[in-house]
Amino acid sequence: MAVINPYLTFKGKCEEAFNHYKKIFGGKFSYLGRFEEMPAEEGFELTDSQKQKIMHICLPLDNGTLLMGSDSGDWAPKLTTGNNIAISIRAKSKEEADKLFNGLAKGGQITMPIENVFWGDYFGMCVDKFDINWMVSFNPEHIVEQ
């Protein structure tokens, strides 16, 4: 079965928050990527300040659980306390990722179609019919056996 992790989104304070969580939980970040690492997209320019914000960060906890997060940036003004958390699922196969994503998206809204993305995952995001935010990913290099 897939692994489920909390995914937190912040309005520019992700790095500060995750440094705080690292002091509490211990460990080291397994990944820290900034928005400046994203491929250029026509019609979407980032300021120097936005480029330094956290695109994605992972703090391994225990038994394969990851606390993950990012900054929303000024381009996501709808972010409010309460909708700033998503459930992230790491599937054990591409087929499982498709099944989970399609099931969760049915009757809801796809916010990012599931597809191969520049950081190497097969990834998609949706909001289910109950207004819960989901992220589904698969990467054969990140499979954690339970």
Rank of each mutant, 00 (worst) to 15 (best):
A2E: 01
V3Y: 07
V3L: 15
V3H: 10
I4H: 12
N5G: 02
P6Q: 07
L8N: 09
F10S: 01
K11T: 06
K11R: 15
G12P: 06
K13N: 14
E16H: 06
E16Q: 12
A17T: 04
H20L: 15
K23T: 14
I24A: 04
I24N: 07
G26T: 06
G26H: 05
G26N: 13
G27K: 11
K28I: 11
R34M: 13
F35R: 07
M38P: 02
M38K: 07
P39C: 11
A40D: 14
E41H: 06
E42Q: 09
E45D: 15
L46Q: 06
T47Q: 10
S49D: 15
K53H: 09
M55E: 06
H56W: 07
I57Q: 01
C58L: 14
L61K: 01
G64V: 05
G64A: 11
L66S: 00
D71C: 05
S72W: 08
W75N: 13
W75I: 14
A76S: 09
K78N: 12
T80S: 14
T81A: 15
T81W: 15
N83K: 11
N84E: 12
I85R: 03
K92L: 05
A97K: 00
K99W: 10
A105Y: 00
G108I: 12
G108E: 14
N116W: 06
W119E: 06
G124Y: 00
G124H: 03
M125N: 04
D128F: 03
D131S: 15
W134E: 02
W134D: 02
M135T: 07
V136D: 01
N139Q: 10
E145R: 05
